[in-house]
Simulated scan of single mutants.
Amino acid sequence: MAGRFRYLAILPALALATASTGAGSDAQREEPFAEAPIALLVDMSSGQVLFSRDADRRFMPASITKVMTLFLAFELIAEGKLSPGQSFAMSEQAYRDWHGKGSRMFLDLGEVVTVETLLLGIANVSANDGAAVLAEGAAGSVEDWVAMMNAKAREIGMNDSHFGTPNGWMDEGRTFTTAHDLALLAREMIARHPRLYRFYVGREGLDYRGIAQANHDPIRGRVAGADGIKTGFTNQAGFGFLGSAERDGRRLVLVAAATASSRERRDVSVAMMEWGFDAFDSRSLYQRGAYVGDAQVQEGARRTVPLVAAAPINATFPHGSTSEPTLTIRYEGPLRAPLEAGEQVAELEIATEGAPPSRVPLVTGQAVAQANGWQRLLNGLAGLFR
């Protein structure tokens, strides 16, 4: 979030050993995690990039596309526009398009299935047929669902992504994304819908209609704290993975794309995640809801609003470091009243020497009503003596 900023503190800076900058050990400089031509590892609690290779390069996500379908469904559930208990039927069109095609739940023509079951199938066995049935049922058509996916992508800032299907099936390159955009999608899904994420994502698999299928997540059961998120594969895209793991309140998200085999995808994903936890420490800066600073307010019943942490905020350091980051609040302002409590209006920038600054959201700690005539007069007089 560019624009006016309020400066909080200068503290001794620290050079992160981020492989994308060329810093770190000799082993890091020898192309770490080389099995993944596209790779990104981010500490979600600090927003800091721990490793990056071609993270802005566009690629075909294949079934990782289904994460956007899941996120959109979670958003609709939160808004009361979709219910896990709703049921949708496999239409003739969906049956023609997806019966016997790729990974699936083996849905039959006319079969009625709940949204909850569809989401479990999409998340854990990559059900192409389930994604199509959900799209038709929730939006009226696959085309309308895809339009909603793209609108949601723009809303959360996925500026280098476009979706042509709800499931990532090959579409001559109309569906594309970047590692940065996928990490952003993972952050928004987990931060906005932690309960739904925990319920639907990262299960062992799905047993539906007497057909048991396993989840092919490459880090689940291999990395402590791993809880998802989604694999992808087509001959055009290669093998990809958007994954996450949490240990002691610290969550890492990784993207590995365009690997040559499922084995390479597994090996590089496990190695990258373990390295992220082992090579870096995390220190708490603010707990969820903690006061961070103030922002100026224009035309409000009060002239400032407290800014608080939207989620626990940490800083990430190479293991054993005792240095501290530089913290800056940034926001476009002054903010204009009225403001609701919990509204995201600013970001805390965490700057460390030798690595790009990271930013995490800050929200309003209380509501600010629009000023009445008397309050506007007092604010105007106070402004004269600033």
Rank of each mutant, 00 (worst) to 15 (best):
V142M: 04
G240K: 05
F317P: 02
A55D: 12
G380S: 13
T352M: 14
A258C: 09
E155H: 07
V270D: 03
L41C: 08
S321I: 05
F88E: 00
L254P: 00
L107V: 02
A2E: 06
T117Y: 02
L14R: 06
A237I: 06
E204R: 12
Q296Y: 01
F74E: 04
A131C: 05
A311P: 00
A382G: 14
V115C: 05
W145E: 00
A131E: 03
T328P: 00
R376F: 11
Y331V: 02
E116D: 15
R96S: 12
P361T: 09
L11T: 08
N314Y: 04
A135Y: 02
R302Q: 11
L184D: 07
L40Q: 10
K101Q: 10
P361I: 09
L362M: 06
V201S: 06
E324R: 12
G173D: 04
A55E: 10
F176Y: 15
S161H: 02
L72H: 01
M1W: 13
T177F: 04
G225H: 08
D181F: 08
V363F: 03
N379W: 07
Q370T: 14
T65A: 06
A147I: 03
M1V: 15
Q213F: 04
E143Y: 04
A310M: 15
A19R: 05
M68V: 09
A151G: 12
V268D: 00
E353S: 13
I64M: 15
T234R: 00
T322D: 11
Q48A: 14
A295R: 09
M90I: 05
E31W: 09
E136F: 08
R283W: 04
F163D: 03
R195N: 05
P361A: 09
L242A: 07
A153K: 01
P32N: 01
D108I: 03
V363W: 00
L184C: 07
K66F: 11
L109G: 04
L254C: 02
A36D: 02
E116A: 14
S83G: 06
A139P: 12
S244F: 01
P361F: 09
V146N: 03
T352D: 04
L107E: 00
L11M: 12
Y331E: 04
L185S: 10
P218E: 03
A135F: 09
P356L: 12
S244G: 14
D181K: 06
G293N: 00
G300K: 02
R386W: 06
H162Y: 12
M158S: 01
G110I: 07
P357W: 03
G210M: 07
E143D: 13
A191S: 15
E155W: 04
Q93Y: 10
A34I: 06
E343Y: 11
R104A: 13
T304A: 13
N150G: 01
I350V: 13
A371K: 01
P334Y: 08
L206A: 07
Y331S: 03
G137L: 10
Y7F: 11
P361R: 04
N379Q: 14
Q93T: 02
A257R: 00
E31L: 13
N235M: 06
F277H: 10
S323A: 15
H193Y: 15
D267R: 13
P166N: 03
D207P: 01
V142E: 10
Y95R: 02
A132N: 06
A311V: 04
